[in-house]
Every structure is written in C-alpha cells, then in structure tokens.
C-alpha cells in the first residue's frame, strides 16, 4: 500500500492548511464601503425616467424659506469656492471627500430618515458624475440641482419666478443643427470622405488555454 493511503493524518494536515488559507482570505478580504445597488440596465432606466432625478431652482425657494425641512443641500465645490459664496444652509462636502467614511455614513443616515439630498456644483455637469454615482450605489434620495450654483447666483433674488425659465435645462438642442451647421457644400466636401471608414471593433478578451 502507498504511503498516502496509510496516512490520513498527512491528508488532514494538508486540508487544515487549505482551511487556514481560506480563513486568511476571509480576514484579508476587502469589504467595500459602497456597493452597486442598481444594475446597468436599471441605471439607464433612471437616466431616461427623469421624474425623480432633478431639483429645480424654483423648488429652492421653499427650502430657503424653511417651509420644506426635508431637504439637505450639499455643496460639492471646494472649500474656497464655498467660502466665497454658497446657497444658504448648504453643507460643504468637497467632491473629493465624498468617499470618506463619515460622509458616506451621513448620506446613509439621510436616506434612512427620508431626507432628500440635493447636490450642486458650479454647473450641472460638475455635479452630474457624483450624482449618477450615488444613484448607482443605491442612494435613491439624491437629486441634482439643475443649473448649478451659477444659475442660482444669477437668479437668487427671484427664484420663485424661474419656474417659466427654461434656460438652465440641459440636453435639448438649442439650434436647428441641420440648418445651421450643414449646407450643400458640406456634402460636396465630405464626398471625399465617403470612402468606407473602417473602425476596429474590439476583440474578445483572451482566456487562458489549458487542459489536464
């Protein structure tokens, strides 16, 4: 008989070693502070269904009058810009500090208490990334202030009247592109480029080959 067969004790030691590796794995495992709560499909869905995404400048009027106490405004700009001027009552969390444990906990507590969080930066674009990020990790109470601080600064005395103003809305064409940017000569000019354009599409990622 072979040594291996006679000695289950050795096998036991090897298995215990295996167990130790797994236990080490459990202890060294990175536990992320945040996890994706929305799948990619759900994320694209919330981008299309905009009813729950935006906070309009005219809605600010209620918050600033302390009529609507269920809203917390967060300023994502740096401390310097915040010091120069900010929306009254806004809390300053510079965007680079967003992942800090304390700030994430704060946001979680807001979510638990059903408080709407409104993010803003100088303009909508600057707050857009962090906003979409927090929506994807499950903070469904986070909205983005349309127009950003720039728009607020320009209209801070007549916020309630901005309801009819649409100049801060993004994503809509401001020009009739086809009319402004094209002409017959364009087609003539681009005829040169009419030869087929070849783009390289990505190849599948290689997997390791092997066998036994």
């Amino acid at each position: 008989m072979h040594v291996h067969e006679l000695n289950p004790k050795k096998t036991l030691w090897v298995l215990i070693l295996f167990l130790i590796v797994i236990i080490i794995g459990f202890f060294t495992m990175k536990r992320p502070l945040l996890k994706y709560q929305l799948s990619l499909k759900q994320s694209t869905k919330i981008l299309k269904d905009t009813s729950n995404n935006y906070f309009y400048p005219y809605q600010l009027a209620n918050v600033l009058d302390h009529k609507n106490k269920n809203v917390v405004i967060i300023d994502l700009r740096n401390k310097y810009a915040y010091g120069l001027g900010h929306i009254p009552g806004a809390k300053s969390i510079p965007s680079f500090n967003l992942t800090q444990k304390g700030n994430v906990k704060l946001l979680k507590s807001y979510k638990k208490n059903g408080i709407t969080v409104v993010l803003y930066a100088d303009n909508q674009l600057d707050a857009d990334g962090p906003w979409l990020f927090f929506r994807q990790v499950g903070f469904c109470n986070i909205k983005i202030l349309l127009g950003g601080y720039d728009y607020y600064e320009a209209h801070k005395n007549n916020l309630a009247q901005t309801k009819t103003d649409g100049s801060y809305l993004k994503g809509i064409p401001r020009f009739n592109y086809a009319k402004v940017a094209c002409s017959k000569t364009v087609t003539a000019a681009s005829k040169k480029a009419k030869k087929p354009v070849v783009f390289h599409r990505r190849k599948k990622v290689a997997v390791a080959a092997g066998g036994c």
Partner: peptide, 17 residues
C-alpha cells in the same frame, strides 16, 4: 443635406481558443 458617410465596420471575429 446630410454630412453622414456610409460607415463600414470590420466585423469582429470570434476569438479562437
């Protein structure tokens, strides 16, 4: 008018393993 050109793509091949 249109500024679009006909775009032809190189089809991605199935990766051989």
């Amino acid at each position: 008018s249109s500024s679009k050109t006909k775009v032809v793509f190189k089809r991605r091949k199935k990766a051989a393993v």
